[in-house]
Design a protein around this nucleic acid. Structure first.
Lengths: 236, 236, 236, 236
DNA sequence: GATGAATGAGATTTCATTCAT
DNA sequence: CATGAATGAAATCTCATTCAT
């Protein structure tokens, strides 16, 4: 809100120093991520972004285009950073379980260091009708399918070929959701370490998955099964 | 996008009949849920809501207050409906596992029948800075803590008293997130039955949880443990 | 600039009285024609139009849409008025010359009474690149072709069938241009009567045309013909 | 419409060579005429002009001043060019009719070779309220009065001294308008040769004028005269 | 001399909200 | 009670213009 630019030399805001384009672009993206993260896409205003970036609006438009494009640029940059953070710690030569463990650790480490990035990626996911929804959804789906593959490898490694087709993807979706939700919960419990968080998710995922791939999946007993009707048969 | 301009159509809409207040409020809330669900809070316009509701804007203000209050009312109504839908199928006298199974079924049945409600509850969750964020977060936390309790009961029922304090809540959070994510995935795979979805979540949760409560939780081997450092120790 | 609304009761601008839609639409169009006429499309601002109309901008958008649509509406209304003004005095049963004379009189009478309308129709005609340019050009072409027909009838009435094909249209274009230019000149010489103006145009058109249809068209002598080269043969 | 954003292209445009001022000014004016012609004064942007000119904006300001001055400079240069093009082919020692014929040919030749120049001179004619309107109107009036003189000479040459005072100017205006309109029509019929166009205008003008100067001007019959009332007597 | 970087000011458009019939 | 009519305020985006390197 207040003018926190350095060198407020007496009178007026003092034209910002001339900086190379790359630097300014980074500044702008940083500010945009922060503001989008805090306010959400629609509530974020270009005015606030420009203020936070310490630069005037026209420069934002000149360098990164209109609001939508700016947002897309944020998404892309942060998604890339997240993917690289995880890819950087995963070693494909390791057995699947270890890969998963490292990946999960990488994820929580990234979230720990980049709360804003994470929020932008996570919290805007469903703003349907927006033109960039595709971008977000696509990223999410890519993540899910990568994890799905990992699960499939794990299943094969354990010699369980019977793992039903089409089962990995929804499970991966559940896993990603669990991770997101845990990361959210973490926001309210900052005293937890990344490793503790990672351990929780790994347990939830692996122990459940460990049983599933061994064919010991849970199934409702006959009594449990009879209890509920399909709701749409009633409501229709 | 759509052409909202009023049209000077000769056949005027015929002043709405005088209806009891409760009916009107329901109409309005139904419309509001639909519009908020499709557009998101900010992109939704009072104009569209009033149009969908078939009621003029001043009435909306008279009955349900300003946009924020209206949104809060939507959240509250839908949250209550979801909670009641689940509560309606859970029988507290049953063993925890069965309760969980029924609860999960109730959840997916509700989502199946009320996509809009679900979207409003789920997709707007993180619009931080808004005054109603509290409302949403609170509902979510309530849900998590209820499930946490359930898990704790289950643990006790299996005679596992050593289940560490403070472990249930994050697990419950993970569970809720997995459920949300699966429900999202479902939106793209409408051919799946509610029961199939419920089965997936139950497996993920219970088989993992089943092992956890029996003390067979997974823990990284020493090699796995050494691999990663806390990122903030480095980046700081 | 100043607030010329009636009843400036003491303090603030006093919300405009509630008027039926049709009345307001007329007010708005009147104001828009005046402002577009004076400033031109681009230099005209919605702010000024709303000020002149004595109504707030949102009403303009509600009733007549965005700037472009508003301008198109102006064009359409004024073009229709001009056409009707002329059509109202032309009697198709009369001989062509008399029709032309009456049409020309109608034209100048309209311009006399509606300087602004005329300016909007005439002066914006060539703002190329605008999406409404088509609308204007189309109207102009329609006018030219109508006059072309009239000329053709006149030629036939004089028993001159040999009037070369494709000659009427450019002549009509010339006639229209002459009319526009005379009308422009009139703006600077308001003391002239409509009848005097009409007479001038009629003379220019008819006497020239009168000779043309009788085959007494002028043609350069050989000496005159040799004088100039096609410029593009040189400049190319 | 076009994407004006600066692009961070690796291969930079290579700082323009130091050129003599006159050359630079010509480059700039050429670009400005092209852009003003296509877009109109207001819609033209200094950015586009500088881009088309291949010279940075600050140079434009240094050499030719602000937008308005630049536009005025365009008008002046193009008007001069047009006048010179016509003056170059007119030989004052020739009889008036031949002068007129040559002048008309010169006009269409110029328009053929300089569409943009012509459009700038013609299409912006009525942007009233702008400070450069004077410049435009002045140029136009000069042209009209030159032609008026020519007509007057022709009248005297034919021994018609009674040609009423004040008649030449409006006729000249009509002639100029007819020329403009024919030039416009030409834009849509590029297959026509300059000579054909010239012939059309000459015929329209001269044959009409030829009769006028001989006192055989057309006058409404009594019946025709009675048909219409002055509109302002009614509407006032 | 030449330019990339920078901005104040203003344009169009929309929206939540309220008055007056 | 019910609504069409009305608006203040703010958001996005563009443009002419000027520093500072």
């Amino acid at each position: 809100m207040t003018d926190n630019r350095a060198e407020s030399n007496g009178d007026r805001p003092a034209r910002a120093k001339r900086l190379p384009r790359a630097v300014r672009e980074r500044q702008i993206l940083d500010a945009a991520v922060a503001v989008f993260s805090q306010r959400g896409y629609h509530a974020a205003s270009m005015d606030e972004i420009s203020e936070v970036a310490g630069i005037s609006k026209p420069m934002i438009y000149a360098y990164l285009g209109a609001k939508e494009e700016l947002f897309a640029a944020c998404i892309q940059r942060e998604a890339t950073r997240l993917v690289e953070a995880i890819a950087g710690v995963v070693d494909e030569s390791l057995p699947p379980r270890e890969q998963l463990w490292r990946g999960i650790q990488g994820f929580f480490a990234f979230v720990a260091d980049n709360r804003d990035s994470w929020r932008v990626l996570h919290r805007q996911a469903g703003t349907q009708g927006e033109p960039f929804a595709a971008e977000l959804t696509a990223g999410r789906k890519r993540a899910i399918s990568v994890i799905g593959l990992l699960l499939e490898h794990a299943a094969q490694a354990q010699g369980v070929g019977s793992f039903a087709e089409g089962q990995t993807e929804p499970l991966a979706a559940g896993l990603v959701g669990a991770g997101e939700s845990l990361a959210d919960w973490w926001l309210d419990h900052p005293e937890e370490t990344p490793k503790a968080m990672s351990g929780r998710l790994m347990n939830l995922v692996w122990m459940g998955f460990g049983n599933l791939v061994q064919g010991t999946g849970w199934r409702p007993s006959q009594a449990e099964d009879a209890g509920l009707q399909r709701s749409d048969e009633v409501s229709a």
